[in-house]
Amino acid sequence: MYTATKLKVEGLTAYYNNKPAISDISLEFPERQVTAIIGPSGCGKSTLIRCLNRLHETAPHTRVEGRVLLDDEDIYALDPVRVRRRIGMVFQKANPFVTMSIYDNVSAALRFNGRHSREETDQVVVRSLQHAALWDEVKDRVDAPAVSLSGGQQQRLCIARALAADPEVLLMDEPCSALDPIATAKIEELIGRLKKDYTLIIVTHNMQQAARVADLTAFLYIGKLIEFGPTEELFERPKEKLTESYITGRFG
């Protein structure tokens, strides 16, 4: 069942060194649903998702054309700083701030936004860590260095950190690709629960993962959108030949 559209991409083309990495992509991401973006390596999925929080343009020799509408406002016409507050991101390799504790990592976003009392910050930190299913594991050592956590825990810490900024959309760029199956399962379970409050967009190279967690799936190939629809339909009754070839594993 479709909900209202939260994020709408219109004719998006993104360039690296004047060569388009994605061309003319149009897509609608519904609110509080999980949308997966799949495709073989180099198809542009990371580029696409990095355009959604305006991170793509921070790299040298890059250009973006087209529109991305967040609740009907083009994010490319807004202040990127504001955009990134509303659209958070979790990266492929967990990147906690290495010099900071767990607590300081999660509360980082709060420090940009004026003074909060210790109690307020505590509340947000606890809530975010709970949301990220990490609280129970770290509750007696929130002042420990963030790097003392395991890979899977660090990734959940990054999720907590992103949630503490109170975004509306959460982008996840292959969040489990560096993790073991157990850690992956924990995060997939987390995704299922997070979608109650946030719109989630996940890039994954793992088709089974998309099948497990996503409500909708988009299939990209060499920078173009090939097919987009409810996950079940895309996997069982793909409309495009290319999609079918990818799904059945005829190319990687």
Partner: peptide, 9 residues
């Protein structure tokens, strides 16, 4: 608006 965001920028 001279709000917090403006101040930060």
């Amino acid at each position: 608006k001279f709000d917090r965001h403006t101040r930060r920028k």
